[in-house]
Amino acid sequence: MRHRRIRSWALGLSGATFAVALATFAWPQPPFPETPVPALRLTPDAPFAARLIAPQPGLTALPAQITGRVAAGDASGSLLHEWPALRAEARFQGSAITLRLNDSVDRWRVTLDGSAVEIARPGQKDLRIEGLPSGPHLIRAERISEWHGPAEFDGFFLDAGATPLPAPQPPARLIEFIGDSDTVGFGNTSQRRDCDSEQVFAATDTSRAFPARLAQDLGTDYRVIARSGIGLLRNYGGVEPQRTMRQLYPLALPSQPEAARLPGRKADLLVIGLGSNDFGSGFATGEPWQDKAALSRDFGPALAEFARARLAENPDAQLILLAFGEYGEELIAPYRQTAEALAADGVGVKLVVLPDLQRSACLWHPSMADHAMIAKTLAGTVRDTLPGWGG
């Protein structure tokens, strides 16, 4: 009996010791996004060299296919941009090419012959790529970060010995995504939520968010009109009530309302996914809604009006209304009402209600797994309702 008591006491002690050890054990945490972001990062074993240099004279502009919302810059051929996901593609034959930017705020990925170089906040510089093998080349430059302010894309340029080739034709169909930080891909590549502003900058990659994933799956082009913190009726926390998506959507540059918007391609499919900021924060003093039920009653008519305006601008487009279901019936109900009202008008509309997300990326934003799930869900909806899309 004595031995049994000693054994019980020992087990109790070991259990208590284990509990204390468990409570004090530092569980391994995923790494933070890499900071500071290097000014230039080249894919290992890339078959070319790349460097940032001062703008060089005497180069010849190369025609490019541009996708994104832009305004004309001061220099001939230059483009000002602020909305996410600007992309440019061009073709040429030669051993070198130059990408010219005047951009102190963004990250860019440039892909060429299967390899990539990323640049961050280059300022007024030329990205010089040289040492290319002979033969034709396809180059693609895409802005992968977000900044609430304009930057300048000045285009691709060739040396005297290179040969310009016709710009590639865009895919037959274009999807336009209208949303907020969830659509932008805010901090999406981070494996943890506690990011500072530089880590958010390092982790945001719009080219890996659900709009780009869906477009790649379906073989379409895509345009992103989205902005972190923005809502349809109210922005996050009720800030800047005169700068919601209803006011900013028509603008080429949200921070420069006077900038003339250059003509863009009509969309074949619109995906509207707003409401996370409307319903995801408390009300500020002076806002016209006392609670989310009142906001929900106003949200439906505003969403229907906004959707009808976008459909009028893109008269052949189909529409997907993308509701983030984790915000509950207060968000889902007005989305459902809008879908029913538009369908009664003869609009080709489909409502997609997403399940709860992991939101394990920066500041509780969708993770890479979330973006993959959203893209897969949308792809299934498109294939089920739009014959001929994506095979």
Rank of each mutant, 00 (worst) to 15 (best):
216 Q>W: 05
144 I>M: 10
346 G>F: 04
377 T>P: 03
224 V>I: 14
77 G>M: 04
96 A>C: 06
40 L>H: 03
263 P>N: 02
115 S>H: 13
271 V>G: 05
321 L>Q: 08
327 Y>H: 12
58 G>C: 04
133 P>F: 08
23 A>H: 06
197 S>D: 15
284 A>I: 03
195 C>Y: 04
46 A>Q: 03
356 D>C: 00
375 A>F: 10
2 R>T: 11
307 A>Q: 08
70 V>T: 15
78 S>M: 02
233 L>A: 00
168 P>Q: 14
44 P>K: 04
25 F>P: 00
165 L>D: 04
180 D>P: 09
150 P>I: 00
7 R>K: 08
225 I>D: 12
192 R>E: 02
372 A>L: 10
391 G>I: 00
282 G>M: 09
257 P>D: 01
292 K>S: 14
15 G>W: 11
271 V>R: 03
353 V>I: 15
356 D>Q: 10
247 Q>V: 11
317 A>N: 12
59 L>Y: 07
163 T>F: 03
378 L>F: 00
22 L>S: 13
136 P>R: 11
129 I>L: 15
383 R>I: 01
15 G>K: 06
336 R>L: 07
77 G>W: 08
283 F>E: 08
343 A>Q: 12
277 N>R: 10
335 Y>A: 01
94 G>S: 08
206 T>F: 05
70 V>K: 04
177 F>D: 09
318 Q>W: 07
71 A>G: 12
134 S>H: 04
136 P>A: 12
285 T>E: 14
278 D>T: 04
92 F>R: 14
40 L>F: 05
200 V>Q: 07
196 D>M: 03
213 R>I: 07
294 A>C: 03
146 E>H: 15
109 R>H: 07
236 Y>H: 13
294 A>G: 11
225 I>L: 12
97 I>P: 06
289 W>K: 08
230 I>G: 06
262 L>R: 10
235 N>D: 02
18 F>E: 01
116 A>K: 01
186 F>N: 12
330 E>N: 11
86 L>Q: 07
128 R>E: 13
177 F>K: 14
80 L>T: 05
166 P>I: 12
365 H>L: 05
149 G>P: 08
